[in-house]
Design a binder for these strands. Structure first.
Length: 500
RNA sequence: GCCCCCAUCGUCUAGUGGACUAGGAUACCGGAUUCUCAGUCCGGCGACCGGGGUUCGACUCCCCGUGGGGGUACCA
């Protein structure tokens, strides 16, 4: 009989979702969808101090942004609800009781200070710092005395003291841990909340998770989970520990690497389909030389067995290149939908543009998309489409605007363009080239200063097409403004020019 | 410190004992494109961490180093 595959993505809602979490979610989703299995979203908020309700929204948004859906979860329900661990507290208690009854769990009265002292001592002695088990065999009298002292207790799981625990991981292979090296982990905190170890084991069991796909930082924890499962007579799921995603400095991706939150990438103008593609290729390879793969293609070829076990660095430059590939191929109308909010955020587009204005934006996007990697660059490289208020770049100043021959050219051009009755790329081109002919100059000698005057830059798309998308009067105004400034020597390159 | 994992161009990776003069992508560099380039096309640079084995033959298998990472919590 075919086993029903069930996987889960189980984030801790502690503020933001970073790209590594999303990577884990993606691999779970790929496996589930490809296998016709179920994707469960479970919220692991057993860290009462750091978990926030708002963070839940961040998780949803991140998953939805990438286009990952889930079959069961806090907002969609499902047969194993609730899917938020803080709502499952009584469930865990029953399992703790089972462990206590079996003599595998016990009350521990040690204070954080005492624990820290133990660790220091062991470290000094050169042995692995771990809980020394001093509360393992307390008598009822001992416990009573401690309670009377006003001490609070937590519950610890009694791990095996001898032998090995062997993990058979789909990605990492067979990994062996020496049982003697770990101390008894806390499974219920003083606050009454379960710790991760207990909750994850109970929930994966109850929710009938068949494959636990998570980051390799959890591999050492798995020895505890395996022992817990054995003590509870629970059949363990299959494990697949994904290699970590590292920052440029080769350490675990974290806040200090700058942009790591999913929302950061969305704000920069990464397209979700590009991020999907890029993330899929981190730690997994289709085995071919293609890199731009559609969601469907990735889904068809994905397998856990093909995942590598070595960590990978998140290369922003390559991610941007890939985004550029997607931007380049995207339908302009679709792209404009992503660009609009970015422009609105930068006050370059009004809150509710008319249909006509939206169509104009699509035309701008279409003209620019082949040279854009991140959509946020629309607010800089394409700024001149949206406002007269832009800077003249140094290179534009140096090469064209700080030239005595430029003002008369710009003025003449302004006059002629102003007289045009039709404002199209063709009429503009005719005018520009006509002026160049009459002045006995190559077209470039007019085109370049004109671009500098109208856009403030020396680079960009076809000048005539670009001008046609800006109001005729605005173009004329910009030409005259640049002519005046240039004539007044106010467009000299500034001192802090970077070397070219 | 101790435990575990990892190791091919700077980066993402292909490679599962002979197909390797080690392939692709990105980044970088150069050329072309005369309407610019951060776009496009073409080209170039660039790696099997080191040492021992095993084998007729190792990038590939084993061991030892080295380097990197993760863990070592009443965080997950």
């Amino acid at each position: 009989m075919a086993e029903q595959i069930r996987v889960r993505f189980a984030p801790a809602p502690t503020g933001y979702m970073h790209i590594g979490n999303l990577h884990t979610a993606l691999f779970n989703w790929l496996f589930a969808r490809q296998q016709g299995g179920a994707m469960v979203l479970r919220i692991e908020d057993t860290d009462e101090l750091r978990s926030t309700p708002e963070a839940l929204g961040v998780v949803y948004d991140g998953l939805r942004w990438l286009g990952l859906d889930w079959d069961e979860g806090p907002n969609v329900g499902g047969p194993y609800r609730p899917y938020v661990q803080s709502e499952r507290l009584e469930i865990y208690q029953a399992y703790v009781q089972k462990l206590v009854d079996a003599g595998r769990a016990y009350e521990c009265f040690c204070t954080p200070e005492e624990l820290e002292e133990q660790r220091q001592l062991m470290r000094a002695r050169g042995v692995p710092p771990r809980y020394d088990g001093r509360c393992r065999d307390l008598t009822e009298e001992d416990k009573q005395r401690r309670r009377e002292e006003g001490r609070e207790s937590c519950t610890r799981f009694r791990v095996k003291e001898t032998g090995n625990t062997i993990i058979n991981d789909i990605i990492q292979g067979e990994v062996t841990y020496d049982n003697a090296l770990i101390g008894d982990p806390v499974i219920v905190k003083t606050s009454g909340y379960p710790t991760y170890h207990l909750a994850v084991v109970v929930d994966d069991h109850l929710m009938e998770i068949t494959h636990v796909i998570r980051a390799v930082e959890h591999l050492p924890n798995t020895q505890i989970h395996l022992q817990l499962q054995q003590a509870l007579d629970i059949e363990p799921p299959r494990y697949a520990h994904l290699p970590l995603i590292l920052g440029e400095d080769r350490t675990k991706l974290s806040k200090r690497h700058g942009a790591v939150a999913v929302t950061d990438y969305a704000a920069q103008g990464f397209l979700p389909e590009a991020m999907f593609n890029f993330l899929a290729l981190l730690g997994w390879s289709p085995g071919s030389e293609e890199e731009i793969l559609s969601r469907q293609q990735i889904l068809e070829r994905f397998s856990l067995e093909a995942c590598g076990s070595s960590p990978s660095v998140f290369d922003v430059a390559k991610a941007e290149w890939m985004n550029g590939e997607y931007v380049n191929r995207a339908d302009p109308q679709y792209l404009a939908d992503w660009v609009l909010p970015i422009l609105q955020e930068a006050d370059l587009m009004e809150a509710e543009p008319s249909h006509q204005r939206q169509q104009w934006l699509v035309a701008v996007v279409e003209l620019m998309q082949s040279r854009v990697k991140l959509l946020s660059t629309f607010t800089t490289w394409a700024r001149y489409f949206f406002t007269d208020d832009f800077e003249y770049e140094n290179r534009a100043r140096r090469e064209w605007l700080n030239d005595a021959q430029t003002p008369p050219k710009l003025t003449a051009l302004a006059n002629r363009l102003e007289a045009l009755s039709a404002w199209t790329p063709d009429t503009i081109e005719g005018t520009v080239r006509g002026l160049a002919d009459e002045l006995g100059l190559s077209a470039a000698k007019v085109i370049h200063p004109c671009r500098a005057a109208v856009t403030g830059t020396t680079i960009g798309p076809s000048l005539f097409h670009l001008m046609a998308l800006i109001d005729q009067s605005a173009v004329v105004g910009r030409l005259r403004r640049a002519a005046d400034l240039s004539a007044a020597s106010e467009l000299q390159p500034s001192g802090d020019e970077e070397s070219q």
